[in-house]
């Protein structure tokens, strides 16, 4: 029983080097018959995999349909209604929710903020993560401790991190207040200033997530064979050259993955911002998701909120797929 269908087919297939491989014309027919073999073998396997499929697919498929596919479809449907969440949605408004959304200045702020967060993630957070990773990837005493320290913020719950930084930024008692006092400035209220608050949020975002990317990079760096560096040394490469022509190309897949995580994570930023600023002052720190929450959920405008959700979904899908298609196709 075990593995027998596969074994039976092997001799018939072209993949067997013993039977007639040299006589056959190269490449194409070989591929074709290999495909046939694969198809046949999977057909033969189906009898065995059937119980597995029956047992394991339905729960996952059911959960996925119920909690992912269905709500997505429903959100799309609700976004065409003016609906408070009570009773069935009846007031069809077409695309009006989307029109209102585009005219909403807080939504535009949220969009630019998200763009800013992505930008900072890419231009500041990833280089910082890369730099610390290069410092800490060597097996020297003490690096483990530092890795832990830098990774710790990532382990922390987002809400807790938001609350902690609220205290840090507090203009009367916070760390920033003490610092400002020490340097002889008057008290500064970072989170109360429309123009500064978003940068305060950005700082926390970088602080919170660079450790995660650093860990990814460390793993990537440790996978690079040391002999490359030895060869480069023999050729008299400088530190920069080693980084530019050895490290960076070999770290490529990790970097692309890291960028992917950073972009998608930035789009979903929510629970860090809520305790920190709640999107304020004057909506200056709204992100797409906090905007959805404040303007959709708390205002009982489920239809409008769904429209925001649809827009967010489209942005995520477009970014994710084009990115995977174009930049990650080799990984």
């Amino acid at each position: 029983m075990s593995g027998s269908p596969l074994r039976k087919e092997r001799p018939e297939g072209a993949s067997s080097p013993v039977l007639g491989w040299p006589k056959r014309p190269p490449s194409r027919p070989r591929q074709a018959s290999w495909r046939v073999a694969a198809w046949r073998s999977s057909g033969g396997n189906l009898g065995r995999t059937w119980p597995v499929i029956v047992l394991f697919l339905p729960p996952a498929l059911l959960l996925f349909t119920m909690f992912v596919i269905l709500p997505m479809g429903e959100a799309g449907w609700y976004s065409l209604f003016r609906w408070s969440g009570y009773g069935p949605p009846t007031e069809f408004v077409g695309l009006r929710n989307f029109a209102i959304l585009l005219g909403n200045s807080a939504f535009r702020t949220a969009l630019t903020n998200n763009a800013l967060i992505i930008l900072v993630s890419l231009a500041l957070q990833l280089p910082l993560a890369m730099w610390t990773a290069m410092l800490l990837s060597h097996r020297i005493r003490g690096t483990v401790t530092f890795r832990l320290v830098f990774f710790l913020p990532y382990v922390l719950a987002d809400v807790a991190a938001g609350l902690i930084w609220r205290f840090v930024y507090d203009g009367d008692y916070g760390l920033i207040a003490a610092l400002a006092g020490f340097l002889g400035f008057g008290p500064v209220y970072v989170l109360a200033d429309r123009d500064i608050a978003i940068y305060a949020v950005l700082a926390v975002v970088v602080w919170k997530y660079f450790g995660f990317h650093m860990m990814l990079f460390i793993a990537g760096l440790q996978a690079i064979d040391n002999s490359y560096y030895e060869a480069a040394d023999l050729d008299g490469a400088t530190g920069w050259q080693k980084f530019r022509y050895v490290t960076l190309p070999l770290l490529g897949p990790t970097v692309r993955l890291s960028v992917f995580f950073a972009v998608i994570g930035s789009l979903q930023l929510f629970d860090l911002v809520m305790p920190l600023t709640g999107g304020g002052p004057s909506d200056s720190t709204q992100t797409l998701v906090t905007f959805l929450y404040t303007y959709g959920v708390t205002r009982m405008r489920v239809g409008f909120g769904s429209a925001v959700g649809v827009v967010l979904f489209v942005i995520c899908i477009v970014l994710a797929f084009t990115y995977k298609r174009i930049l990650m196709r080799h990984d």
């Binding site: 009367d172 209220y189 970072v190 109360a192 200033d193 600023t277 304020g280």
Partner: peptide, 16 residues
């Protein structure tokens, strides 16, 4: 608005 101009509230009140 005029009341706000008097700065009657604690500094940083927009974030409190």
């Amino acid at each position: 608005q005029e009341f706000g101009k008097l700065e009657p509230f604690q500094p940083g009140y927009l974030g409190t």
